[in-house]
Design a protein around this nucleic acid. Sequence first.
DNA 1: CCTCCGCTTCGACATCCATCGAACGGTCGC
DNA 2: GCGACCGTTCGATGGATGTCGAAGCGGAGG
Lengths: 108, 108
Amino acid sequence: MREPHHPSCDELELSAVLHALSDPARLEIVRWLAKGDECTCGMFDLGLSKPTLSHHFRVLREAGVVRTRPDGRKRMLSLRDEELEGRFPGLLVAVLSADRERDGAPAA
Amino acid sequence: MREPHHPSCDELELSAVLHALSDPARLEIVRWLAKGDECTCGMFDLGLSKPTLSHHFRVLREAGVVRTRPDGRKRMLSLRDEELEGRFPGLLVAVLSADRERDGAPAA
DNA sequence: CCTCCGCTTCGACATCCATCGAACGGTCGC
DNA sequence: GCGACCGTTCGATGGATGTCGAAGCGGAGG
């Protein structure tokens, strides 16, 4: 299983990162990853099919938001938080902290 | 000229804001507005037609990123930076500061 | 070796989105 | 009022995007 392409820090584009984060499903994935767990692709239950998840992983990966590490027949996903922080300081933190007061959620 | 709808702080959705900021043209507009000038719609020269600009203004406005104030036959645009900061602390700052090291620009 | 398993790729499809030209609406100056 | 001006709205269009089922691919296990 070959290592897929990951953009270097210099190649990261702000628009691409913002676009990657602008989808609720991908935001959920990032939120999940931010909890620190290293995740396999299959453990996400967002009500989406496997191809769709794979698509979102690719968008996130190509934007430089996540890293994919092949591990046997699984793939471990992790946030590229440090690299993101280096390239776009404060961005990921802001997105994740803003995310805590979930968009439409403060119904309680 | 009636005042168009502006979402309140509570109504702001993270995905919508990120989506609004994920377009290069809109990012350019926001960058421009961040310089502090209050701008009329017509002063943006991004090589886009008027309808397209108007479209981007609307996306930014409906996401809660900018405010539109009718002024005679012009419309003054301004960043809702304080409200954005209140709702999504650090987000706009991060986007704008990241933006200084322009995406593909560090060719020099 | 054969099969199962995890994930990706392919092909298709519906939808969204950025873009434009043309037409419209409100405001100012004359 | 009339025309010029600024910006929006309408309708159309091409391209991107999210979504899925089916098929493919590489590794693990019996």
